[in-house]
Design a protein around this nucleic acid. Structure first.
Lengths: 104, 104
DNA sequence: CCGATAATATGTATTTCAATATAATGTTTC
DNA sequence: GAAACATTATATTGAAATACATATTATCGG
């Protein structure tokens, strides 16, 4: 009989690794705010800067983190770079978070 | 007319601060695994040690993080300290994470 | 087409925080 | 008091946050 405990522990570790990487990405107030904005509509960097009052280099750095993690994707239009959510799981998570932390 | 944009930005920041604190707590593979185990049943430290193969002091440190954040609570029974989930929001989040990262 | 300007991204330095390992200390039971 | 279980303290290392300067890319007026 195979040791199913060990097998599922490995799988659990793998899943936990994936999930916790995503959670770390959301676990920063600035990045979470960025994703909340982007969950409503596609926005360019200067839009985000104006709405959230975060300095541009710092904004760009956090957007870089989200890009490298594959959570957002970009589209250039003239001088502007538009960001959008690229991972549907982010939307699901944001929805749950909204219910838990913003509703009522 | 009040500036509703500013007001809701403040509220958003506050909510994002709360939510991202929770997300940071879950954003570590060991802590996420711990919470997954505890979401199924109450367990003591040596149970967790055996199931997850995490060394005991390191386990205790991560459990301490979860305690301080109010995500778990404890109950002593003789020599053993039993841990359980103390924040219902954790259960909701774990459920969503399970669907996104473990189902299928 | 060229230089100026606006928008965005990257590099660098500093500080702060999290992870890891190990040693030492408390607490409970027997 | 000894054994088992758990927490705390300490030291070290690495990663993330922050701030600021600089570079890249695109548009536009001449």
């Amino acid at each position: 009989m195979p040791d199913t405990t060990e097998i599922s522990l490995d799988k659990m570790r793998a899943s936990a690794g994936n999930a916790s990487a995503m959670l770390r990405s959301l676990g920063n107030p600035d990045r979470l705010l960025l994703l909340c904005q982007l969950s409503q509509e596609e926005l360019c960097v200067s839009d985000l800067e104006e709405r959230l009052d975060i300095r541009q280099p710092s904004l760009s750095q956090q957007l870089g983190v989200l890009r490298r993690e594959g959570l957002v994707s970009t589209r250039r239009e003239g001088k502007h770079v538009y960001y959008q959510i690229a991972d549907q799981r982010v939307l699901r998570l944001l929805q749950t978070l909204y219910e838990l932390y913003c509703a009522e």
